[in-house]
Nucleic acid binder design. Structure first.
Lengths: 129, 129
DNA sequence: CCACGCCTTTACGTTAGCGTCAAACAACTG
DNA sequence: CAGTTGTTTGACGCTAACGTAAAGGCGTGG
Protein backbone atom coordinates (compact mmCIF):
# COMPACT_ATOMS: atom_id res chain seq x y z
CA UNK A 1 0.00 0.00 0.00
CA UNK A 2 1.04 3.51 -0.69
CA UNK A 3 3.64 2.15 -3.09
CA UNK A 4 3.97 3.92 -6.35
CA UNK A 5 3.97 1.84 -9.45
CA UNK A 6 6.24 3.55 -11.98
CA UNK A 7 4.82 1.45 -14.81
CA UNK A 8 1.37 2.97 -14.49
CA UNK A 9 2.68 6.51 -14.14
CA UNK A 10 2.00 7.57 -17.69
CA UNK A 11 3.66 10.64 -19.04
CA UNK A 12 2.02 13.47 -20.95
CA UNK A 13 3.40 16.41 -22.85
CA UNK A 14 1.79 19.78 -22.52
CA UNK A 15 0.34 19.39 -25.98
CA UNK A 16 -1.15 16.01 -25.06
CA UNK A 17 -3.15 17.49 -22.25
CA UNK A 18 -4.10 20.57 -24.23
CA UNK A 19 -5.49 18.37 -26.98
CA UNK A 20 -7.24 16.02 -24.60
CA UNK A 21 -9.05 18.78 -22.75
CA UNK A 22 -9.51 21.22 -25.57
CA UNK A 23 -7.58 24.03 -23.97
CA UNK A 24 -4.47 25.93 -25.01
CA UNK A 25 -0.94 25.19 -23.88
CA UNK A 26 -0.85 28.80 -22.83
CA UNK A 27 -3.65 28.14 -20.38
CA UNK A 28 -1.82 25.18 -18.90
CA UNK A 29 1.34 27.22 -18.43
CA UNK A 30 -0.77 29.91 -16.88
CA UNK A 31 -2.23 27.47 -14.39
CA UNK A 32 1.27 26.36 -13.49
CA UNK A 33 2.35 29.97 -13.03
CA UNK A 34 -0.50 30.33 -10.56
CA UNK A 35 0.62 27.22 -8.71
CA UNK A 36 -2.40 25.09 -9.59
CA UNK A 37 -0.21 22.37 -11.10
CA UNK A 38 3.50 21.67 -10.86
CA UNK A 39 4.70 19.26 -13.51
CA UNK A 40 8.18 17.83 -13.39
CA UNK A 41 10.85 18.92 -15.80
CA UNK A 42 13.03 17.04 -18.20
CA UNK A 43 15.57 19.69 -18.86
CA UNK A 44 13.33 22.64 -19.49
CA UNK A 45 10.44 20.63 -20.87
CA UNK A 46 7.39 20.01 -18.72
CA UNK A 47 6.47 16.41 -18.02
CA UNK A 48 2.99 15.72 -16.69
CA UNK A 49 1.94 12.64 -14.75
CA UNK A 50 -1.46 11.29 -13.74
CA UNK A 51 -1.58 13.50 -10.72
CA UNK A 52 -1.23 16.64 -12.82
CA UNK A 53 -3.82 15.36 -15.22
CA UNK A 54 -6.23 14.69 -12.38
CA UNK A 55 -5.71 18.20 -11.09
CA UNK A 56 -6.40 19.59 -14.51
CA UNK A 57 -9.71 17.80 -14.56
CA UNK A 58 -10.62 19.38 -11.25
CA UNK A 59 -9.53 22.78 -12.51
CA UNK A 60 -11.73 22.55 -15.58
CA UNK A 61 -14.68 21.37 -13.58
CA UNK A 62 -14.17 24.30 -11.26
CA UNK A 63 -14.20 26.60 -14.23
CA UNK A 64 -17.42 25.14 -15.53
CA UNK A 65 -18.87 25.91 -12.13
CA UNK A 66 -17.80 29.51 -12.56
CA UNK A 67 -15.04 29.59 -9.97
CA UNK A 68 -11.99 31.81 -10.19
CA UNK A 69 -8.56 30.24 -10.35
CA UNK A 70 -7.98 31.57 -6.87
CA UNK A 71 -11.01 29.68 -5.62
CA UNK A 72 -9.98 26.58 -7.48
CA UNK A 73 -6.54 26.81 -5.96
CA UNK A 74 -8.07 26.80 -2.49
CA UNK A 75 -10.24 23.93 -3.50
CA UNK A 76 -7.29 21.87 -4.71
CA UNK A 77 -5.60 22.51 -1.41
CA UNK A 78 -8.40 20.57 0.25
CA UNK A 79 -7.40 17.54 -1.77
CA UNK A 80 -3.75 18.03 -0.91
CA UNK A 81 -4.52 18.25 2.74
CA UNK A 82 -4.26 14.50 2.81
CA UNK A 83 -1.41 14.39 5.23
CA UNK A 84 -0.04 16.73 7.83
CA UNK A 85 -2.86 19.23 8.05
CA UNK A 86 -4.95 20.38 10.96
CA UNK A 87 -8.02 18.27 10.55
CA UNK A 88 -10.28 20.77 12.26
CA UNK A 89 -9.20 23.52 9.95
CA UNK A 90 -9.63 21.23 7.00
CA UNK A 91 -13.17 20.17 7.74
CA UNK A 92 -13.99 23.77 8.53
CA UNK A 93 -12.87 24.87 5.10
CA UNK A 94 -14.60 21.95 3.46
CA UNK A 95 -17.82 22.93 5.19
CA UNK A 96 -17.44 26.51 4.01
CA UNK A 97 -17.14 25.24 0.48
CA UNK A 98 -20.10 22.98 0.85
CA UNK A 99 -22.27 25.86 1.98
CA UNK A 100 -21.40 27.86 -1.10
CA UNK A 101 -21.95 24.91 -3.35
CA UNK A 102 -25.31 24.16 -1.86
CA UNK A 103 -26.38 27.74 -2.34
CA UNK A 104 -25.30 27.33 -5.92
CA UNK A 105 -27.20 24.10 -6.17
CA UNK A 106 -30.35 25.83 -5.00
CA UNK A 107 -29.87 28.66 -7.50
CA UNK A 108 -29.34 26.15 -10.20
CA UNK A 109 -32.44 24.16 -9.43
CA UNK A 110 -34.54 27.32 -9.31
CA UNK A 111 -33.19 28.41 -12.66
CA UNK A 112 -33.78 25.05 -14.25
CA UNK A 113 -37.32 24.97 -12.95
CA UNK A 114 -37.99 28.43 -14.34
CA UNK A 115 -36.71 27.46 -17.74
CA UNK A 116 -38.95 24.43 -17.78
CA UNK A 117 -41.81 26.75 -16.93
CA UNK A 118 -40.94 29.08 -19.76
CA UNK A 119 -40.88 26.20 -22.17
CA UNK A 120 -44.22 25.00 -20.95
CA UNK A 121 -45.77 28.44 -21.41
CA UNK A 122 -44.34 28.67 -24.88
CA UNK A 123 -45.94 25.38 -25.83
CA UNK A 124 -49.32 26.35 -24.43
CA UNK A 125 -49.20 29.45 -26.55
CA UNK A 126 -48.65 27.33 -29.62
CA UNK A 127 -51.65 25.19 -28.82
CA UNK A 128 -54.03 28.05 -28.13
CA UNK A 129 -53.09 30.08 -31.18
CA UNK B 1 -56.29 40.42 -16.17
CA UNK B 2 -53.19 41.90 -17.64
CA UNK B 3 -54.15 45.19 -16.05
CA UNK B 4 -51.42 47.10 -14.35
CA UNK B 5 -52.12 48.37 -10.90
CA UNK B 6 -50.22 51.62 -10.47
CA UNK B 7 -50.67 51.49 -6.71
CA UNK B 8 -48.56 48.38 -6.33
CA UNK B 9 -45.88 49.64 -8.70
CA UNK B 10 -43.43 50.63 -6.01
CA UNK B 11 -40.57 52.91 -6.88
CA UNK B 12 -36.95 52.45 -5.94
CA UNK B 13 -33.94 54.70 -6.17
CA UNK B 14 -30.64 53.34 -7.34
CA UNK B 15 -29.36 53.54 -3.78
CA UNK B 16 -32.38 51.57 -2.51
CA UNK B 17 -31.57 48.64 -4.73
CA UNK B 18 -27.84 48.87 -4.11
CA UNK B 19 -28.47 48.69 -0.39
CA UNK B 20 -31.03 45.92 -0.64
CA UNK B 21 -28.80 43.67 -2.71
CA UNK B 22 -25.44 44.65 -1.30
CA UNK B 23 -23.98 45.85 -4.57
CA UNK B 24 -22.63 49.22 -5.70
CA UNK B 25 -24.60 51.83 -7.57
CA UNK B 26 -21.78 51.68 -10.07
CA UNK B 27 -22.60 48.05 -10.76
CA UNK B 28 -26.26 48.87 -11.34
CA UNK B 29 -25.38 51.65 -13.77
CA UNK B 30 -23.04 49.25 -15.47
CA UNK B 31 -25.80 46.68 -15.89
CA UNK B 32 -27.96 49.37 -17.42
CA UNK B 33 -25.17 50.39 -19.78
CA UNK B 34 -25.08 46.78 -20.92
CA UNK B 35 -28.80 46.77 -21.48
CA UNK B 36 -29.66 44.31 -18.71
CA UNK B 37 -32.06 46.73 -17.08
CA UNK B 38 -33.67 49.92 -18.34
CA UNK B 39 -35.16 51.99 -15.55
CA UNK B 40 -37.31 54.99 -16.33
CA UNK B 41 -36.06 58.49 -15.79
CA UNK B 42 -37.36 61.37 -13.80
CA UNK B 43 -35.33 64.11 -15.37
CA UNK B 44 -31.91 62.53 -15.27
CA UNK B 45 -32.55 60.40 -12.22
CA UNK B 46 -33.18 56.69 -12.58
CA UNK B 47 -36.47 55.35 -11.27
CA UNK B 48 -36.75 51.60 -10.79
CA UNK B 49 -39.96 49.62 -10.64
CA UNK B 50 -40.71 46.06 -9.61
CA UNK B 51 -39.80 44.76 -13.02
CA UNK B 52 -36.30 46.17 -12.80
CA UNK B 53 -35.92 44.83 -9.31
CA UNK B 54 -36.98 41.38 -10.48
CA UNK B 55 -34.44 41.52 -13.27
CA UNK B 56 -31.76 42.49 -10.82
CA UNK B 57 -32.53 39.41 -8.78
CA UNK B 58 -32.12 37.26 -11.86
CA UNK B 59 -28.88 39.02 -12.71
CA UNK B 60 -27.40 38.37 -9.29
CA UNK B 61 -28.48 34.77 -9.35
CA UNK B 62 -26.83 34.40 -12.72
CA UNK B 63 -23.66 35.83 -11.28
CA UNK B 64 -23.70 33.40 -8.38
CA UNK B 65 -23.92 30.68 -10.99
CA UNK B 66 -20.80 32.06 -12.61
CA UNK B 67 -22.35 33.43 -15.77
CA UNK B 68 -21.04 36.41 -17.68
CA UNK B 69 -23.24 39.44 -18.11
CA UNK B 70 -23.48 38.54 -21.75
CA UNK B 71 -24.87 35.13 -20.85
CA UNK B 72 -27.22 36.66 -18.35
CA UNK B 73 -28.42 39.11 -20.95
CA UNK B 74 -29.32 36.23 -23.24
CA UNK B 75 -31.00 34.51 -20.36
CA UNK B 76 -33.12 37.54 -19.54
CA UNK B 77 -34.18 37.68 -23.15
CA UNK B 78 -35.83 34.31 -22.66
CA UNK B 79 -38.08 35.88 -20.04
CA UNK B 80 -38.85 38.82 -22.28
CA UNK B 81 -39.80 36.54 -25.13
CA UNK B 82 -43.24 36.47 -23.60
CA UNK B 83 -44.97 37.86 -26.61
CA UNK B 84 -44.18 38.14 -30.28
CA UNK B 85 -41.29 35.76 -30.54
CA UNK B 86 -40.77 32.72 -32.64
CA UNK B 87 -41.74 30.00 -30.27
CA UNK B 88 -39.55 27.42 -31.96
CA UNK B 89 -36.51 29.59 -31.64
CA UNK B 90 -37.39 30.32 -28.05
CA UNK B 91 -37.74 26.73 -26.91
CA UNK B 92 -34.59 25.92 -28.80
CA UNK B 93 -32.63 28.48 -26.86
CA UNK B 94 -34.24 27.44 -23.63
CA UNK B 95 -33.19 23.88 -24.29
CA UNK B 96 -29.63 24.98 -25.00
CA UNK B 97 -29.58 26.71 -21.66
CA UNK B 98 -31.03 23.73 -19.92
CA UNK B 99 -28.30 21.50 -21.30
CA UNK B 100 -25.59 23.74 -19.94
CA UNK B 101 -27.30 24.01 -16.61
CA UNK B 102 -27.70 20.30 -16.30
CA UNK B 103 -24.03 19.79 -17.05
CA UNK B 104 -23.36 22.28 -14.33
CA UNK B 105 -25.72 20.45 -12.02
CA UNK B 106 -23.82 17.23 -12.58
CA UNK B 107 -20.48 18.93 -11.94
CA UNK B 108 -21.87 20.43 -8.82
CA UNK B 109 -23.18 17.17 -7.46
CA UNK B 110 -19.88 15.45 -8.15
CA UNK B 111 -18.00 18.17 -6.38
CA UNK B 112 -20.31 18.12 -3.38
CA UNK B 113 -19.97 14.37 -3.13
CA UNK B 114 -16.20 14.61 -3.24
CA UNK B 115 -16.13 17.17 -0.51
CA UNK B 116 -18.29 14.96 1.67
CA UNK B 117 -15.82 12.20 1.01
CA UNK B 118 -12.90 14.37 2.00
CA UNK B 119 -14.62 15.28 5.22
CA UNK B 120 -15.32 11.66 5.95
CA UNK B 121 -11.69 10.69 5.38
CA UNK B 122 -10.54 13.50 7.62
CA UNK B 123 -12.75 12.26 10.42
CA UNK B 124 -11.57 8.69 10.05
CA UNK B 125 -8.02 9.91 10.37
CA UNK B 126 -8.91 11.58 13.63
CA UNK B 127 -10.38 8.38 15.00
CA UNK B 128 -7.51 6.14 14.01
CA UNK B 129 -4.79 8.45 15.30
C1' DC C 1 -27.02 81.47 1.19
C1' DC C 2 -24.50 77.67 1.75
C1' DA C 3 -23.42 73.22 3.11
C1' DC C 4 -25.03 68.40 2.68
C1' DG C 5 -26.61 64.45 0.60
C1' DC C 6 -27.98 62.11 -3.40
C1' DC C 7 -28.08 62.03 -8.07
C1' DT C 8 -25.78 62.46 -12.77
C1' DT C 9 -21.98 61.68 -16.62
C1' DT C 10 -17.19 61.15 -18.21
C1' DA C 11 -13.16 58.94 -17.97
C1' DC C 12 -9.19 56.66 -16.45
C1' DG C 13 -7.49 52.57 -13.44
C1' DT C 14 -7.47 47.68 -12.14
C1' DT C 15 -7.63 42.50 -11.92
C1' DA C 16 -8.34 38.05 -14.07
C1' DG C 17 -7.51 34.95 -17.59
C1' DC C 18 -5.71 34.06 -20.99
C1' DG C 19 -4.30 35.20 -26.64
C1' DT C 20 -0.66 36.28 -29.48
C1' DC C 21 3.64 37.12 -31.18
C1' DA C 22 8.84 36.80 -30.80
C1' DA C 23 13.21 34.66 -30.24
C1' DA C 24 15.63 30.72 -29.14
C1' DC C 25 16.79 25.82 -28.47
C1' DA C 26 16.08 20.43 -29.28
C1' DA C 27 14.86 16.53 -31.93
C1' DC C 28 13.52 14.29 -35.98
C1' DT C 29 13.17 13.82 -41.11
C1' DG C 30 14.08 13.91 -45.91
C1' DC D 1 22.22 20.24 -43.92
C1' DA D 2 17.91 22.53 -44.17
C1' DG D 3 13.30 22.36 -42.78
C1' DT D 4 9.53 21.05 -39.83
C1' DT D 5 7.57 20.25 -35.36
C1' DG D 6 7.44 20.92 -30.50
C1' DT D 7 9.19 23.02 -26.67
C1' DT D 8 10.70 27.04 -23.70
C1' DT D 9 10.55 32.00 -21.64
C1' DG D 10 9.35 36.69 -21.95
C1' DA D 11 6.45 40.47 -23.06
C1' DC D 12 2.73 42.97 -24.80
C1' DG D 13 -2.43 42.92 -25.92
C1' DC D 14 -7.19 42.36 -24.85
C1' DT D 15 -12.01 41.79 -22.77
C1' DA D 16 -14.96 41.73 -18.72
C1' DA D 17 -16.66 43.82 -14.78
C1' DC D 18 -16.49 46.88 -12.30
C1' DG D 19 -13.64 50.72 -8.79
C1' DT D 20 -12.51 55.24 -8.27
C1' DA D 21 -12.09 59.92 -8.71
C1' DA D 22 -13.62 64.35 -10.84
C1' DA D 23 -16.96 67.80 -11.75
C1' DG D 24 -21.39 69.22 -11.65
C1' DG D 25 -27.02 69.54 -10.99
C1' DC D 26 -31.04 69.39 -7.62
C1' DG D 27 -33.40 69.90 -3.28
C1' DT D 28 -33.53 70.52 1.74
C1' DG D 29 -32.43 72.29 6.25
C1' DG D 30 -30.25 75.51 9.26
Amino acid sequence: MNRIDPETAELYSIADLAREFGISTRAIRFYESKGLISPERLGATRVFRRRDRARLILILRGKRLGFSLRDISDYLALYDADRGQQVNLLTEKVDERLQLLEQQLADLQTTIAELHEIRKLARERVVSS
